[in-house]
Design a protein around this nucleic acid. Structure first.
Lengths: 122, 122
DNA sequence: TTAACTGTATTAGTATTTATAGTACACTTA
DNA sequence: TAAGTGTACTATAAATACTAATACAGTTAA
């Protein structure tokens, strides 16, 4: 599914969160698709199940997955009630990053091209 | 100059870095302008000078300021050799954030409008 | 030269975070 | 029932983050 980089300064559970988030955002993991169980993924990645559990809890609190006791963890449907908050947070971060990019000399045209590039794959 | 929010979960030195970066990016602090001394800023913000020093060191390693022993710390000129790297990093982060925004339902048009909004103030 | 100002380095102590381990419980499914 | 799920809790060790106190070295201006 993915691998952990031991040289990465970021904590393992954060790496797991990031990798899974990427898979979800890029639609590799589809809506309501079942994720590996906590224990399975722990075996795959060769780390402690509690670390996976922590990552799953984080993803759930961020609204990307939902978990059902005894059944498993699944990818959340894209449009949920929490989406508005998430969108606003992302937009805030985007504002800061865009201002920084412009400060560094990136042009508005380059930025708009980037949007087309990222969004074009659908 | 700015204030520290004690309720903010982020460490003080990071808050200092963020605030100063904002001032630099938004051109409140101009090229080669002198920043407050480590000790002065520490008094202003009511924290330990070492915490400011850490923030300054971080800003220096990120290329936003440069420090001269005995003289002070100053805002870096915008275009430096390290800019290419910085730009690439920011573009990478932007790609991820843009993909996330699109996933959350933000349209390409909204994103392009955001660019115009951020960049329009100059 | 001296005094007061700069950044910097070092050391220390405390708090927090991270990762792991073990155990137990409750629910679902075959 | 048995095996597989998520979840909760405690404990521990290690690493990292954070702040603080102090001392050192360079610059500047009186």
């Amino acid at each position: 599914m993915f691998e952990i980089d031991p040289r990465d300064r970021n904590p393992i559970y954060e790496q797991v969160v990031e990798r899974l988030k990427e898979l979800i955002i890029h639609d590799v993991l589809k809506e309501d698709e079942k994720l590996p169980s906590v224990r399975d993924l722990a075996k795959q990645v060769m780390i402690n199940p509690n670390t996976i559990q922590k990552a799953y809890r984080e993803l759930e609190s961020q609204g990307y997955i939902y978990s059902l006791k005894g059944r498993g963890s699944f990818v959340s449907p894209t449009y949920t009630t929490e989406n508005k908050e998430k969108r606003e947070k992302v937009m805030e971060q985007l504002k800061k990053l865009l201002a920084e990019a412009l400060y560094l000399g990136v042009t508005e045209e380059e930025l708009k091209a980037l949007i087309t590039e990222v969004g074009g794959g659908e």
